[in-house]
Design a protein around this nucleic acid. Sequence first.
DNA 1: ATGGCTAACATGGTTAGA
Length: 256
Amino acid sequence: MRIATWNVNSLRVRLPQLKEWLAASPVDVVGLQELKLTDEDFPRGEIEALGLHATWYGQRTYNGVAILAREALEDVDYGIPGFDDPQRRVIAATVRGVRVVNVYVPNGQAVGSDKYFYKLDWLSRLRNHVAAALGRHERLALVGDFNIAPEDRDVHDPAKWEGSVHVSPEERAALGELMQAGLADTFRLFEQPPGTYSWWDYRMGAFRRNHGLRIDLVLASHALARRCIGCHVDRTPRAWERPSDHAPVVASFDIA
DNA sequence: ATGGCTAACATGGTTAGA
């Protein structure tokens, strides 16, 4: 079973690339972030024409998340229960017995800003929600755009980024709390090429120079992580014309 | 010292991303 995550940065713009990528890289489940469209505008027909099931939670202009899967999606949840967040950033569903929680973590803008404190509060609420979900689901995958580079080796130039949003100690601690609820970073279960990132700025030829961050993750509950047989970043679509600034990340699991 | 690019909304210039 292959579980993927991809921040598409506008599903309207990226739908042709999503189709092309899925045709070349069939996955069982993919969590999408930054749809940037309303629920009415979700391209349901085109997704279903690919033979995929889908559930989505969108809004105008910003944010928006979806889960696509080859098999039926069960027990869909929208948002974080008990958190009346106007920003649509979380969607969850069960596919073939695996609980998939797909998130678009707030950017945080700048350390100390209102958006930064919203990000930290948001992560704390996510942590409580995921801890509860882990109690109900032995096999759980938490996937998405976390907007946090877990370690310095996930940053192309750690000295330049030190203390900035995406790498600040508070953000990394919040991610650590999330992991301590019972999750493993599937990417780090395997030997990986140094300098593997999942996001590159559109500016300054950042992709060409591999100036990136690894901020898109597939986290797995320990029971699921034990079945993980690989995880990689697929840089291919980032090199296409008019790309998303994020690349998809795919984890493979040896489960029936 | 800061922008560089892209997308949405709107239709010129702002907001936001990371």
